[in-house]
Design a binder for these strands. Structure first.
Length: 312
DNA sequence: TACGCGTGGTG
DNA sequence: TCACCAAGCGT
């Protein structure tokens, strides 16, 4: 959960998740959709699918691998997570290299090569951080101390070098460039994509939803029926031509949502109908409008539903 | 290597 | 408002 996600955002999800799936066996035995639903709103949904697959693999193996190579082979476990689990759970003297440790290392050794090209260099330098006896004796505490140093003093924007225990040995601090490291390669501009989604509710206050494809963006998550997300705006006629049924559609506004690599602008249309024909209902599934929790809805769709319901 | 993959917080 | 960032991984 903590991959690219703040401790604060993870907290509630983590506790709910452990309550729902208290053991690796319970997680392995759960339905994939139940796991996705517990993850809904947290983002990077491949982590949920990988974690579920990972639990099944661990159960099949008869327990957790206890070394870096064994952990690294599990789904969703990369170099960082393998090292973190090995050090923190199993006391293996390795240094997990996350964003914090990359930043600390870049500053300590004044590495001016920009990320991501510098990643290999930084990992090699970080590996040498725990050579002293005290550090090697407590791999978990050493890793945690690095995370905390990065999160508190050696922070991205304005590092508190005056308070840093490593101030004297920090090459970037000596050179006066600590705040400018690590350097990053310039980013590409984030394009805007446009879509339209449709909220339709029957007399029993059920709304029509559908499942997204198994691969790609928001894989296997739930959504309101809608158009493609494309680089040109949709005309009203063009959007309504793809409405899930005939109804007096009402445009109720635009939802703007920022993904990592593009910004999405969704025009939301809403309508009431007496009842759904079988033909229409079979394009997706029906759910009570008041109870959309537990349906693996990503945040962008929660925004759309909220906007649509307000108009009805 | 470079990109696809979410969401919320912050200066 | 907006760019940047967060206990990265898979392809």
């Amino acid at each position: 959960m903590l991959q690219q996600t703040t401790v604060k955002a993870v907290g509630p999800y983590y506790h709910r998740f452990l309550e729902k799936f208290p053991t690796v066996e319970a997680l392995a035995a759960a339905d994939r959709d139940e796991v996705l639903s517990a993850w809904a709103g947290l983002g990077y949904y491949s982590r949920a699918r990988n974690l579920h697959a990972c639990a099944q693999q661990v159960v099949a193996l008869g327990g957790f691998p206890k070394d870096v190579a064994g952990l690294r082979a599990l789904p969703g476990v990369g170099a960082y997570t393998a090292a973190a689990v090995a050090a923190i759970a199993f006391g293996v003297p390795v240094v997990p290299v996350d964003g914090n440790v990359e930043r600390i290392t870049a500053r300590l050794f004044a590495v001016e090569e920009p990320l991501p090209a510098a990643r290999k260099t930084l990992a090699a330098l970080a590996e040498g951080l725990n050579t002293d006896k005290a550090a090697r004796a407590r791999p978990s505490d050493f890793a945690q101390a690095l995370f905390d140093l990065g999160a508190s003093l050696c922070s991205p924007r304005s590092p508190a070098c005056g308070l840093c225990p490593w101030r004297e040995s920090c090459a970037a601090q000596k050179a006066g460039i600590a705040a400018t490291l690590p350097r990053k390669a310039p980013k590409v501009a984030r394009p805007v994509r446009y879509g339209a989604h449709f909220l339709v509710m029957d007399a029993a206050e059920q709304i029509l939803l559908r499942k997204r494809p198994e691969t790609g963006l928001l894989a296997a998550m739930t959504e309101l029926p809608g158009t493609d997300w494309r680089s040109e705006r949709w005309s009203e006629a063009g959007a309504l031509a793809q409405a899930p049924c005939t109804a007096s559609w009402q445009a109720c506004g635009v939802v703007r949502h920022v993904f990592t690599h593009f910004t999405l602008e969704v025009t939301v249309y809403a309508a009431r109908v007496q009842h759904f024909s079988n033909h229409v209902a079979q394009t997706g599934f029906l759910a009570p409008a008041g109870r959309v929790a537990g349906l693996s809805l990503p945040s962008v769709m929660l925004k759309c539903i909220k906007l649509g319901l307000k108009a009805l």
